[in-house]
Design a protein around this nucleic acid. Structure first.
Length: 467
RNA sequence: GGCGACAUAGCCAAGUGGUAAGGCGGAGGUCUGCAAAACCUUUACCCCCGGUUCGAAUCCGGGUGUCGCCUCCA
């Protein structure tokens, strides 16, 4: 059994076979940098980060590309409203993106191409399309003839006729057909622009991805991902362009995540119900948000509520506690080598790992994979204690880290060293406890709690953790 | 109107033919100076109606309901 991936194109789970054995090229549509990322944006960012981690974990050599759309109507309009330079504003939000993504445990992609830095490739791509008869220029704009592409509509499962029937598109007189879409936009006054064979202008939205995939991954990416709202028109159009230009499919596997809603409603600026991770992370650990985002399968809609975020935080804490317990046992244990009973658990560790892998192999079922971590946790607590052998405890800790790393959870940031004042309070409390002065002991514990330090008394000594 | 999802406990969520994983929350218990952590026990007529099958949460048909996309959108 290998990895299986649901392919939007075929609407089926398929065996995952990279073009080149052992190597995978992934392209994910990244943010249009016109504002801070909201938690809806965070879902694909976190999910595809896990896809990447998992494929690496399974021994594949992954090249992960995620673009920034930094030339776009929304950016230009916003910047104009604020009276700032659009490119500078985009730059600022790219910086903010890395802060937010980093906090969520998302590693930078191998390449983060930007539209503004691929103008040359984009122009070449458009020229190619014109030369092949798929695109036409009208007064400084260039359009793609959708009808020229026989497979147009394949990805979104809609025929050109269907699309026309439901069309709510404003008719643009310059287009030859309503379903045509723009590849190059003629400059309007005050807009950023680059010289081109058709005069100054800027790339349309869809073309950048086609050009970047070709440049960074070759004609065909193994996986092309993004939110399900991108299926049409964005990915449909990308696919059409690339087919036309290269004769090859843009991607073999199209992977789309479902939406994240807030309190049962779609998030949108007009409803005013969008939430930004940096706001959430003021009151919750970033890891709790990450856990929440992975707690449902990526193709299921996910409803964000504070209650669920709390539940995610509590669930994650259980895993954290398990790890903390293990680390403490490792310190206090007097025994190195495993006994026979422990060897049985060691065998079960393999089963737990396999359960995790089976879940992830099946179309990246993170929810099921997480449950494997909880089953591991229960097994460990039921079997081991402070008297466990160091050898086994180490093996268990390693497994937590191994599987946690795949999900980007259970990060091993060791406890920040506490300052002297805190250490003194802890020592004072220990002294009070020795005197059986419970009032003073509890007072000191409350005082520390107020500073965000939680103490737990265990038979092996006091343990501290940060709230 | 066209295309497509989804409906499993108080909440969330796996499970695609052999009579229901996991988490949060709740209840009871063990341990502990108290607390915490941990452990044990407990908490499901799988939206409705038909059909296929020895057997259906799972497949098929029909309802009902919720949602997404149909050229800004992760």
């Amino acid at each position: 059994m290998g990895i299986r991936v649901y392919n939007t194109l075929t609407r089926r789970k398929e065996d995952f076979r990279p073009i080149e054995p052992g190597r995978v090229g992934i392209y994910v549509c990244g943010p249009t940098v016109w504002d801070y990322m909201h938690i809806g944006n965070a879902r694909p960012i976190v999910f595809f980060d896990v896809v990447r981690r998992y494929l690496k974990y399974r021994g594949l050599d992954v090249k992960y590309v995620q673009n920034f759309t930094d030339v776009d109507d929304k950016i230009i309009n916003r910047a104009r409203g604020l009276g700032v330079d659009p490119m500078a504003m985009a730059e600022g939000y790219i910086k903010a993106y890395f802060e937010d993504a980093g906090a969520l445990g998302v590693a930078p992609a191998d390449v983060h191409p930007r539209a503004s830095r691929h103008i040359e490739e984009i122009i070449a791509f458009i020229e190619d399309l014109i030369a092949k008869g798929y695109a036409y220029e009208v007064g400084g704009d260039v359009y793609f003839s959708a009808a020229r592409d026989k497979a147009y509509g394949q990805l979104s499962g809609q025929s050109l006729e269907d699309l026309k029937a439901g069309a709510r598109v404003e008719v643009d007189e310059r287009k030859r057909a309503p379903e045509d879409f723009v590849l190059w936009k003629k400059q309007k006054p005050g807009e950023p622009a680059w010289p081109s064979p058709w005069g100054p202008g800027r790339p349309g939205w869809h073309i950048e991805c086609s050009a970047m995939v070709r440049k960074h991954l070759g004609p065909t990416a193994d996986i092309h991902g993004g939110g399900s709202d991108l299926v049409f028109p964005h990915h449909e159009n990308e696919a059409a362009q690339s087919r036309a230009a290269t004769g090859a499919p843009l991607a073999n596997y199209w992977v789309h995540n479902a939406f994240l809603n807030i309190e049962g409603e779609k998030m949108s600026k007009s409803l005013g119900n969008f939430i930004v991770p940096r706001e959430i992370m003021r009151s919750y650990r970033p890891e709790a948000l990450r856990f929440f985002l992975l707690s449902a399968h990526y193709r299921s809609p996910l409803n964000f509520t504070e209650e669920q975020l709390k539940a995610a935080d509590a669930a994650l804490e259980r895993l954290d506690n398990a790890l903390a317990n293990l680390k403490q046992w490792l310190v206090v244990s007097q025994r190195e080598a495993m006994d026979d009973e422990e060897r049985k658990l060691l065998g079960r560790l393999t089963a737990h790992r396999e359960r995790f892998i089976t879940a992830m192999d099946d179309d990246f079922n993170t929810a099921d994979a997480i449950s494997a971590l909880f089953e591991l946790t229960r097994d460990v607590h039921a079997t081991l204690g402070p008297q466990a052998s160091k050898e086994l405890v180490k093996a268990v800790i390693d497994l937590y880290h191994e599987l946690g790393d795949v999900l980007g959870l259970l990060r091993r940031d060791e406890q920040a060293s506490l300052d002297d004042a805190v250490e003194r309070l802890i020592a004072q409390r220990q002294e009070a406890r020795r005197r059986r002065d419970w009032a003073e002991s509890d007072r000191l514990r409350d005082e520390l709690a107020a500073k965000g330090i939680i103490l737990e008394d265990t038979p092996q000594g006091v343990r501290r953790k940060r709230k």
